Simulated assay, not measured.
Amino acid sequence: MHINKVCRVTTIARVAAELGEDENWLSDIAGEMEPEDGLIWVYGPGDQETIAFTDFGIEQLQELIAIHRDQTN
């Protein structure tokens, strides 16, 4: 039996605020991520949806941020 080990996720809005980054820019970068990278889509009522990350996902996102920064410098 598979037991899910994810006990919490953090929305992209909160991650952006905590990292001091633009949420739209992070959303573009997160487009390169897969669920295996710790990215989760959260769906709410109606058409509401947002990206969220596991702790591992935040680490992966930070690595992508560094790569994108290196490419622009």
Results as ranks from 00 to 15, higher is better:
M1W: 08
M1Y: 09
H2M: 15
H2C: 09
I3D: 15
K5I: 00
K5R: 05
K5T: 06
K5V: 08
V6L: 03
V6Q: 04
V6D: 06
C7I: 12
C7H: 06
R8W: 06
R8F: 13
V9Y: 07
T10L: 00
T10R: 01
T11P: 00
T11R: 00
T11A: 01
I12Q: 10
I12R: 07
A13I: 02
A13Y: 02
R14E: 15
R14T: 12
V15P: 00
A16M: 00
A17R: 08
A17L: 07
A17C: 03
E18P: 06
L19Y: 05
G20F: 02
G20N: 02
E21H: 10
E21L: 07
E23K: 08
N24Y: 13
N24Q: 12
W25E: 10
W25F: 13
W25A: 05
L26Y: 02
L26S: 06
L26N: 04
S27M: 12
D28S: 12
D28A: 11
I29R: 04
I29K: 07
I29P: 04
I29L: 10
A30C: 11
A30H: 04
A30L: 06
G31A: 05
G31N: 10
G31Y: 05
E32L: 12
E32G: 05
M33A: 05
M33Y: 05
E34S: 11
E34W: 11
E34T: 13
E34L: 14
P35V: 09
P35R: 08
E36G: 07
E36M: 07
E36L: 08
E36N: 06
E36F: 08
L39H: 06
I40Y: 06
I40D: 04
I40S: 01
W41R: 15
W41D: 15
V42W: 02
V42R: 02
V42P: 00
Y43P: 03
Y43A: 13
G44Q: 08
G44P: 05
P45A: 14
G46T: 09
G46D: 13
D47W: 13
Q48P: 00
Q48K: 08
E49R: 15
E49V: 14
E49T: 15
E49Q: 15
T50F: 06
I51Q: 12
I51W: 06
I51M: 11
F53K: 04
F53E: 07
F53L: 09
D55N: 11
F56Y: 10
G57H: 07
G57W: 05
G57P: 03
I58C: 01
I58G: 03
I58Y: 03
I58E: 06
E59C: 15
Q60Y: 13
Q60E: 15
L61H: 01
L61W: 01
L61G: 00
Q62H: 09
Q62P: 02
Q62V: 07
Q62N: 11
E63D: 11
L64C: 09
L64F: 11
L64W: 13
L64Q: 12
L64K: 14
L64M: 12
I65P: 02
I65V: 10
I65F: 08
A66L: 12
A66N: 10
A66C: 01
I67D: 11
I67W: 08
I67T: 08
R69C: 09
R69F: 10
R69K: 12
R69Y: 08
D70A: 15
D70I: 04
D70N: 13
Q71D: 14
N73M: 15
N73F: 11
N73T: 14
